[in-house]
Amino acid sequence: MFKKEINIMVNNEHYVREVAVNRTLLEFLREDLGLTGAKEGCNEGECGACTVLVDGKPVNSCLMLAVEADGSYILTIEGLAKGDLLHPLQQAFIDEGAVQCGFCTPGMIMTAKAILDEYGNPSEKEIRKLMEGNLCRCTGYTRVIKTVKKTAEALAAK
């Protein structure tokens, strides 16, 4: 397979790597960089478990090639906390009981982060619509949506 050099920032670290042109961003993150927080649930862009932020936008990393991310800044779940200080969303997911098996959780939190960054304090209805692409089989979403809304409100009040 052809390889191409990419120049990429991931979680505030700079990488120059040769990658096969058919390698997905998800494979690159998980296998080449060992960042296994993003999960493969369907490999067809339906479940959202692989969600990472590419230049701030939520992306199903299973549908994006690593070479397409050349020159981009990637944020994964591993890069969300500042050292030991969890991002407010991470802390809220713990405190509000929005985590069960946890397989979808990294993707959920990354999508939620993108929503808060872009919309500030959206309504519950808007959050539901914006998180539609992240599937969860345990929680029924109730706690997840409440948690995102509560965090948005808390951050907006600051």
């Binding site: 960042l35 927080g37 779940i77 591993e78 997911f93 713990i94 009981g97 985590v99 946890g102 939190i109």
Partner: peptide, 13 residues
């Protein structure tokens, strides 16, 4: 609160 949540929200699980 669950004991495994921290690892699950940071991607380290």
């Amino acid at each position: 609160l669950r004991k495994d949540s921290h690892d699950k929200v940071t991607g380290s699980a």
